[in-house]
């Protein structure tokens, strides 16, 4: 007669001071939390590196907390973070490749502006903050166009902020300077 095979281990015999092994998942959770911490830091580095480039998504969905997550849930958080890091790195790599090309283009424009008529490269195209741009334009407008005098003009930066000045917090009605009367 064939005996039925079972994957469940039998209870240990009495008197041998043995016990069934109970798996404690706390160590696994602790290990996963450590991995999540390292990945969060890496994502933070990528966040800083990506600035001022736009179009990056750093979001990783939560698990409807606050509560103690199970091993499965922590694994899902870790895997989502790993996938996000891969995605952001890939995206950043693409940006860097394009920016490298734009930097080379600036060099070529500076060397031969006539070959790059009206081409304009902005700071954001090379992954830099600010409003500076390089623009291949004719010297003296239409005259330069007709005579083929081209040059790369570099802008001086961002326009100054405009609008009314904010009120001075320390100014009292007595110390306030009289407003100029433009009707005089």
């Amino acid at each position: 007669m064939a005996t039925e095979l079972s994957l469940v281990p039998p209870a240990p015999p009495e008197g041998l001071d043995t016990a069934l092994f109970v798996h404690d998942q706390r160590a696994s959770r602790s290990d996963l939390r450590r991995q999540i911490a390292a990945m969060e830091l890496e994502l933070g580095h990528l966040f800083s590196s990506a600035f001022p480039r736009l179009g990056f998504d750093f979001g990783v969905a939560g698990m409807s907390g606050p509560r103690v997550l199970t091993v499965d849930e922590l694994e899902r958080v870790r895997d989502s973070l790993a996938a996000k890091i891969r995605e952001v790195k890939g995206h950043l790599q693409e940006h860097l490749h394009i920016e490298e090309g734009k930097r080379a283009l600036i060099g070529e424009m500076m060397a031969d502006p006539t070959a790059y008529k009206w081409v304009r490269v902005a700071n954001k195209d090379i992954g830099e903050p600010g409003c500076k741009h390089w623009h291949s334009r004719p010297r003296w407008g239409p005259i330069g166009m007709l005579l083929g005098w081209w040059r790369v003009k570099i802008s001086s930066g961002c326009p100054l902020a405009e609008g009314l000045r904010p009120p001075d917090a320390h100014q009292t009605p007595e110390t306030k300077a009289p407003s100029p009367d433009y009707r005089r």
Partner: peptide, 11 residues
């Protein structure tokens, strides 16, 4: 990190 550990998305 703690937000991630307790199932919250800090973003």
């Amino acid at each position: 990190v703690f937000y991630r550990h307790i199932g919250l998305d800090p973003d």
